[in-house]
């Protein structure tokens, strides 16, 4: 068992693989973490989840670390809202807002942290904050249709050669995880549009609801060998069907 203190309050941790952010969230402290998603590997790039840590043995020295990646070490004293942390978070919010001035999510954060952006000259009307959640989600799906291209200020998320990505399956995981709604995904009449490509959406053979792109189902079929016909039912109807079978077997 690991014992740490968060903002002076002792916390006991049983799972040693937990990061500081996991613990901070669990005890109900809210800190922003835009590039974090519980289902994806942490990256530490937005730097908003920074906290100040120290240990009694450090002779008064402290460190600023990203809580999404920092492991829980016994004896750590964590400050989630120290003056140093607040100051840093505030400037980072300002920097992000200067880049994406129309983002509602960032405007809300700016309000919370009293961050006024006026000093940073030109405002850009970017949507993407380059947190990399979309590229990580795509990678985890085993597709890698999009990735980060270029570096520094010119960095952006794009498919290879900025062309409609051939290997994209239109699953929409990228748009789903985007914390600022920067990835455009539209659906009309059974057609999904994303990354300049159009995907046919499968209608559930039972309830008739559109639920996943055909390409996505084919990907599942190819990857896990599930027969295509079994994939044409939406998740809810599938559950219902299983439920019915179970009920018949055990109760009827």
């Amino acid at each position: 068992m690991i014992k740490i203190r968060v903002n002076g309050k002792p916390v006991a941790i049983h799972d040693e693989d937990k990061t500081l952010l996991d613990v901070i969230k669990e005890i109900g402290i809210n800190i922003p973490a835009l590039c974090y998603h519980p289902g994806l590997p942490a990256r530490g790039s937005c730097r908003l989840c920074v906290v100040e840590i120290t240990k009694p043995s450090w002779n008064g020295r402290s460190k600023i670390v990203t809580s999404c990646l920092y492991p829980c070490e016994d004896g750590l004293e964590v400050l989630t809202h120290s003056p140093k942390v607040i100051k840093l978070r505030k400037v980072i919010i300002k920097l992000l807002l200067a880049r994406c001035s129309d983002s509602k999510e960032l405007q809300e954060l700016a309000l919370q942290y009293n961050a006024d952006v006026s000093r940073f000259g030109t405002k850009e009307n970017e949507k993407c904050i380059l947190c990399g959640l979309c590229t990580r989600a795509c990678e985890e799906m085993g597709i890698e249709a999009i990735s980060m291209v270029n570096r520094g200020w010119k960095k952006e998320v794009a498919p290879p050669y900025y062309e409609p990505p051939e290997n994209c399956i239109g699953c929409g995981a990228c748009a789903e995880v985007c914390p600022v709604g920067a990835i455009e995904l539209t659906e009309t009449n059974g057609i999904r549009r994303i990354w300049n490509r159009e995907f046919e959406i499968q209608k559930c053979v039972e309830c008739g609801k559109y639920f996943a792109t055909v390409a996505q189902l084919e990907h599942l079929h190819n990857k896990y060998g599930i027969p295509l016909k079994d994939l044409k039912t939406c998740p809810e109807c599938s559950k219902k069907r299983v439920g019915t079978v179970l009920k018949k077997t055990f109760f009827d």
């Binding site: 908003l48 920097l95 380059l130 520094g152 200020w153």
Partner: peptide, 25 residues
């Protein structure tokens, strides 16, 4: 440094760009 920043983290990517803007000004 602004040109060489890899662009992964916000302070380095956005911060060096803004600092450069100010210095150019």
């Amino acid at each position: 440094t602004q040109k060489e920043s890899c662009g992964k983290c916000v302070p380095c990517r956005e911060g060096t760009k803004r600092m450069l803007e100010i210095l150019e000004k």
